[in-house]
Design a binder for these strands. Structure first.
Length: 417
DNA sequence: TCTGGGGTCCTAGGACCC
DNA sequence: TCTGGGGTCCTAGGACCC
């Protein structure tokens, strides 16, 4: 038995947790660069504003209905997410953190416990300790728990147990095929052509038909809908295989120096991420591209296998700069760039090279000090000169709330009259 | 004018090995 | 004309997730 715990409109709930005046107000949280809507309060959903809509397309509604817009504040969301997950861990050791706002729980050890009462207690505890409302769906497979959670979201209790539901078929029938976990845009179009319009119809489709189109992934999906668990709980997160830092620019970039500043900056962030994960990269890719929405979008990538796997910032910047030089073309309106660290291996098992001349121990210690300073005093307190000073390519973040829980100088203030 | 970022998994096909 | 069998590794591309 599985439960899926999902935070209700998570980013919006985080903003509300530290600013109670936002309760019952129509608010949205925007993606990086203040580009698209990535979280909506129920009031905004009721206005028919969709997920992922670009902000400039809803300017009128924002004005008309006084919708408050927030730039995303990942320091805050990440910290509150950790707190929620920690609370879940105090209820059961079988927790799979699936995303920033979702976790699967394994309930196999709770045979003699009333699950409704227990999950209600989980829900109340999270609410009381963090201020974040969650919904919980229970079922015999992860895919069904996802569906149960959709039902829970609409129920006043915030809970739904599909396994004790007398009429499962009618629940599945009400789930549109595009809302089934693992069915995206392409596949839902195909399904509809095959006359499969809801979860019930997919469940009752012959497996070979689905297997032929979707491979083993599809077969697992149908079996999961039939109540046969194929996707196990993954309690220990497996180490990352690659890690990427990329951003759209706040403006168009045509200058090589400026482009290199940005790539150097992304490389710095990616290197710090590697060190935090105690991993080294054995290859490095840089990509630069124009706007996706240009009449003829263009982009290019370049990859380099590193002589010795590393997470040393200056070394990685050196290679990233060489790749950027190779990629750059004059007079192209670049809008986005990124670096991808690939072939990640544990820092402790790096194969050294006979011809390596670098003092890796020394530079690792230097990086440790840099990381400590930046952790303590804020990102970018110490930076590399190639990252630039003005950083005019940096993205827009016009309406970011304070980092209430992670920066001492931004703690929330309570008034008392 | 303005359109996010960071991932994973699977498959097919090519190169290569003995 | 007929041209083996069994395998690994890598990459690109397509699909999906939140």
């Amino acid at each position: 038995m599985f439960a899926l715990v999902d935070c209700n409109n998570f980013y919006v709930s985080c903003e509300r947790a530290f600013n109670p005046q936002l309760q019952d107000k129509a608010i949205v949280v925007l993606s990086n660069n203040d580009g698209c809507v990535v979280a909506r309060s129920p009031e905004v959903k009721a206005l028919g504003i969709g997920m992922g809509v670009p902000l400039f397309k809803i300017r009128e509604e924002v004005k008309k209905y006084n919708i408050l817009t927030f730039s995303s504040n990942y320091a805050l969301y990440g910290d509150l997410s950790n707190r929620v997950m920690k609370i879940l861990g105090s209820f059961t050791p079988e927790v799979e953190i699936y995303s920033i706002d979702e976790a699967f729980l394994g309930l196999s050890g709770f045979k003699d416990i009333d699950l409704t009462t227990y999950t209600m207690e989980i829900r109340q505890t999270i609410m009381q300790w963090t201020g974040i409302p969650v919904s919980i769906g229970i079922a015999s497979t992860k895919t069904l728990a996802k569906i149960a959670n959709r039902v829970a979201k609409k129920s006043p209790s915030g809970l739904f147990d599909l396994s004790i539901c007398p009429d499962q078929d009618s629940v599945l029938q009400k789930i549109d095929i595009s809302d089934v976990w693992g069915i995206g845009r392409k596949l839902s179009n195909w399904m509809k052509e095959q006359n499969i319009h809801n979860a019930l119809q997919l469940r009752d489709t012959d497996i070979p038909i689905i297997r032929k189109k979707m491979g083993v992934v599809g077969e697992r999906l149908v079996r999961e809908l039939r109540g046969e668990s194929c996707l196990p709980l993954e309690i220990c997160p497996s180490p990352k295989k690659e890690t990427c830092v990329s951003r759209s620019f706040g403006k168009v970039v045509t200058d090589l120096t400026e482009l290199k500043e940005a790539v150097a900056h992304f490389t710095t962030k990616a290197s710090a991420k590697l060190r935090k994960q105690q991993q080294c990269a054995s290859a490095l890719t840089v990509f630069i591209r124009t706007s996706r929405y240009a009449s003829s979008p263009w982009g290019d990538t370049a990859t380099l296998a590193l002589p010795v796997a590393t997470n040393d910032t200056p070394e990685l910047i050196y290679y990233a700069m060489r790749l950027t030089n190779r990629l750059f073309l004059p007079d192209v309106p670049y809008k986005k760039a990124g670096v991808i660290m690939q072939g990640l291996i544990p820092q402790s098992t790096v194969q050294s090279s006979l011809f390596d001349t670098k003092d890796r121990y020394k530079s690792l210690r230097l990086m440790e000090v840099v990381d400590q300073i930046n952790d303590r005093f804020g990102e970018g307190t110490i930076k590399f000169a190639v990252e630039g000073i003005k950083q005019e390519w940096k993205m827009k973040n016009e309406n970011r709330s304070p980092s209430y829980t992670t920066r001492a100088d931004q703690l929330p203030v309570a008034w008392c009259h």
